[in-house]
Design a protein around this nucleic acid. Structure first.
Lengths: 142, 210
DNA sequence: ACTTTACTTTAGAAAGC
DNA sequence: GCTTTAAAAAGTAAAGT
């Protein structure tokens, strides 16, 4: 299990040849990182013949709803949610459709994680925005 | 048929053994935390339902019981922070928190949201404050809630700041350090909450120093 | 008091314990 | 189940000026 950093990524390399690359901001960055790691390994006498198969496993994204959220009411109205301000300031919402988890803050900022496609992130963020709006827990400002 | 009976008996006795040890654990926790019997009874009920949902399998009786006690305290609006309870258990607060989340999800337990006002009486009595000051602190918390200043904030920190302000206004001044210690939060948190409350609720303070 | 660093929460994969 | 890796959010904490 080794660890390298290059285009701002960290990669775990296993003896099976499989790797886990984290920290990249785009799929293109992952490609670059993997290629440079392979180059590095070859330079150290480790031969890699096959081309790498890259799969995106998780996307972490942040969004801004541009409106504050009444977390207390949201926690009461949303079924798959958990809000424990004593332990974490955000409301944790488990969405089933795009199967993602959203961390919703009173500031209106949101973190979306668990998605494998960018499109799922967009869909999830638009969806909670509408859900929160319909529940009347969004306080539009600005 | 005899086999079936034996299986059932075995399962029942292991459950009884588990429950017996859980009760010992509950009594120990209850004594150390100074909890009333009603809370302990409720905690035992929660533990029993957790046992029935097989969620105690694979984890320590200690952490599940600690989580049940925490849930019972919240249900009965008797403030005890998770860290406080975890202090008396061998398992760390991370484990207790995990068991608590398990109770919420798997045992479909519904626990009311923590309210900062629930922490006021205990902090107030620790600081020997008057009933009037305690009432005033609760009013401040109500105002803060209506102004939307409580979202995401630690209830204990808010309660501490409200008490600090109320005490100042009623001439029963306590230092931020004293209030912080009683509320089990840091001075910095009391200061941050206090500043925000004074500014956003435009609370006027008597002869202030700074 | 201010700043910096760090920890809380979420998801996912890898291989081994 | 646990471990390791990264990143964001906002709150709290601790340590160093």
């Amino acid at each position: 299990m080794l660890r390298l950093t290059r285009p701002k990524t960290a990669t775990l390399i296993f003896s099976s040849g499989k790797m886990v690359c984290t920290g990249a901001k785009s799929e293109a960055e992952v490609q670059k990182a993997v290629k440079s790691i392979i180059k590095l390994l070859k330079a150290h006498g480790i031969d890699i013949k096959n081309e790498p198969v890259i799969e995106v496993q998780n996307i972490v994204a942040s969004a801004n709803l541009k409106a504050s959220v009444d977390l207390e009411r949201a926690a009461f109205l949303l079924e798959n949610s958990m809000y424990e301000p004593e332990q974490f300031p955000g409301l944790i919402y488990r969405m089933q459709d795009p199967k993602v988890v959203l961390l919703i803050f009173s500031s209106g900022k949101v973190v979306c994680t668990g998605a494998k496609k960018e499109e799922e992130v967009k869909r999830a963020v638009e969806k909670i925005y509408n859900i929160l709006k319909e529940q009347g827990v969004l306080v539009e400002e600005e | 048929r005899l086999r079936k009976w034996q299986v059932r008996a075995r399962a029942q006795s292991s459950m009884e053994r588990n429950l017996a040890q859980a009760v010992i654990e509950l009594e120990r926790l209850g004594a150390q935390l100074g909890l009333p019997k009603a809370v302990l009874d409720r905690a035992l009920d929660i533990y029993k339902s957790a046992l029935d949902s097989n969620l105690v399998r694979g984890r320590s009786i200690e952490s599940v019981m600690a989580a049940a006690v925490y849930a019972a305290c919240r249900e009965m609006r008797l403030p005890r922070t998770l860290d406080e309870i975890a202090l008396y258990t061998r398992a760390g607060r991370k484990d207790v928190a995990r068991c608590y989340r398990l109770l919420l999800r798997e045992a479909s337990l519904k626990v009311p949201l923590p309210n900062a006002a629930d922490f006021v009486p205990r902090i107030g009595s620790l600081l020997r404050l008057s009933g009037a000051t305690i009432k005033r602190a609760m009013e401040i918390i109500d105002q803060a809630r209506n102004a939307g200043l409580t979202a995401g904030k630690d209830p204990a920190g808010l309660a501490a700041a409200a008490i600090y302000i109320a005490a100042l206004q009623n001439g029963e001044m306590r230092t931020q350090k004293e209030v912080a210690r009683a509320a089990k939060v840091t001075e910095v948190t009391v200061r941050n909450r206090y500043k925000e409350l004074v500014k956003k609720l435009d609370i006027k303070l008597p002869v202030s120093k700074k």
